[in-house]
Design a protein around this nucleic acid. Structure first.
Length: 326
DNA sequence: TTGTGTTTTATTGCCTCC
DNA sequence: GGAGGCAATAAAACACAA
């Protein structure tokens, strides 16, 4: 954009005079524009203005130069500008001044820019550039902070998730153990019944493994990117979408704190519904074995007739807390 | 001293706003 | 269409280890 390529000594205005209003009051930063005048910041490295016509640099419009009139003699002066100017870093007090100004407001209005430039002995363009670069640095740091916050948040969630996973494994092991004990206890019954029961148990465990995988994947993906679409995709990946055994509510409950009013139906086994019903009545496979919508309350609002995570609780039943599967 | 990485100053091109 | 902001980048200045 040609209109803005003004460089130093360009259209930003004169900067060769000292403002009488810009010094900071160190005790009252807000009085920045009301303080007493000072030339203290116009040190030997201060930028000189080429606006007054006396010191028009041959490199005007390309490089600015920081020098002091006392620093070089008149005869050296011409030679001084025979070479392309090099960048000069701002003095520490100039930077400090600019930093304080930036703290007050990181945006620079034109009047403020000119005043700052006058006070610092810089070109207004330099002040503008400094603010621009300073905003860029601030943004970078801000992004880094945000990243750290998110990282910590993720680590915390991950640790939480891992703990829950471990707890789940522990409960699973407990369920298995109790199931085995139950089977042994029932072993005294008829061989036929035991055989069927074992079939159901095997199917039950197989289904549980399948559910574990899908639930774990869903949780893991949810923690990673928290996208609902992933839940749906995982759902379709994990289960046959045509299966009536899973409800949307069950899947949505994966990522919701407490929504336990639905229970999950086990996997299809190789036994018939009649057989299953029979076994359920004979083998302590109660109604919660069928994962269906219950009428009882949720785990967040337990009632005497409600279940743990929506399962009817029978103290003698190892399956009483199967609802923790999710 | 020199090579290398980092920081700072400044430019360029694009975009938005008025 | 000009002014100003921002992202990307160049290049000088600086820091520092070998």
């Amino acid at each position: 954009m040609a209109g803005r390529r003004c460089f130093y000594g360009g259209s930003d205005g004169a900067a060769n005079t000292t403002s009488s209003s810009l010094l900071f009051n160190s005790q009252r930063p807000e009085s920045f524009f009301l303080s007493a005048p000072s030339n203290s910041l116009l040190g030997s490295n201060s930028m000189v203005s080429f606006q007054d016509g006396k010191r028009k640099s041959p490199y005007d419009g390309f490089f600015m130069r920081s020098y002091d009139e006392d620093e070089i003699g008149d005869e050296e002066y011409d030679e001084y500008f025979q070479q392309p100017e090099k960048k000069r870093r701002l003095k520490a007090d100039q930077i400090q001044f600019l930093e304080k100004s930036f703290e007050i407001d990181n945006k620079l209005e034109p009047e403020r820019k000119v005043q700052l430039a006058k006070e610092l002995g810089l070109q207004p363009r330099q002040v503008a550039i400094w603010f621009q670069n300073r905003r860029a640095r601030w943004k970078t740091k801000s992004l880094e902070k945000d990243y750290d916050v998110l990282q910590n948040s993720y680590n915390s969630l991950k640790a939480n998730y891992d703990n829950l996973l471990a707890e789940k494994e522990k409960l699973k092991a407990e369920v298995l153990d109790l199931t085995d004990k139950l089977l042994l206890k029932e072993d005294k019954g008829s061989k036929t019944v035991v055989s069927d029961k074992q079939k159901v148990s095997a199917a039950f465990q197989q289904e549980r493994v399948s559910n574990d995988v899908s639930a774990g994947e869903v949780l893991s993906n949810s923690v990673m990117d928290c996208k609902q679409e992933d839940h749906n995709s995982m759902r379709s990946d994990a289960v046959d979408s045509d299966s009536p055994r899973y409800s949307d509510e069950v899947y949505s409950s994966f990522m919701e704190p407490v929504d336990c009013s639905y229970v999950m139906e086990p996997a299809q086994s190789d036994i018939s519904q009649d057989e299953e019903d029979n076994l359920r009545s004979n083998l302590f496979l109660p109604s919660y074995y069928v994962f269906s919508k219950t009428e009882a309350g949720s785990c967040s609002d337990p009632s005497p007739n409600s279940s743990y995570f929506g399962f009817p609780v029978e103290e003698d039943h190892a399956f009483g807390f199967w609802g923790t599967e999710l």
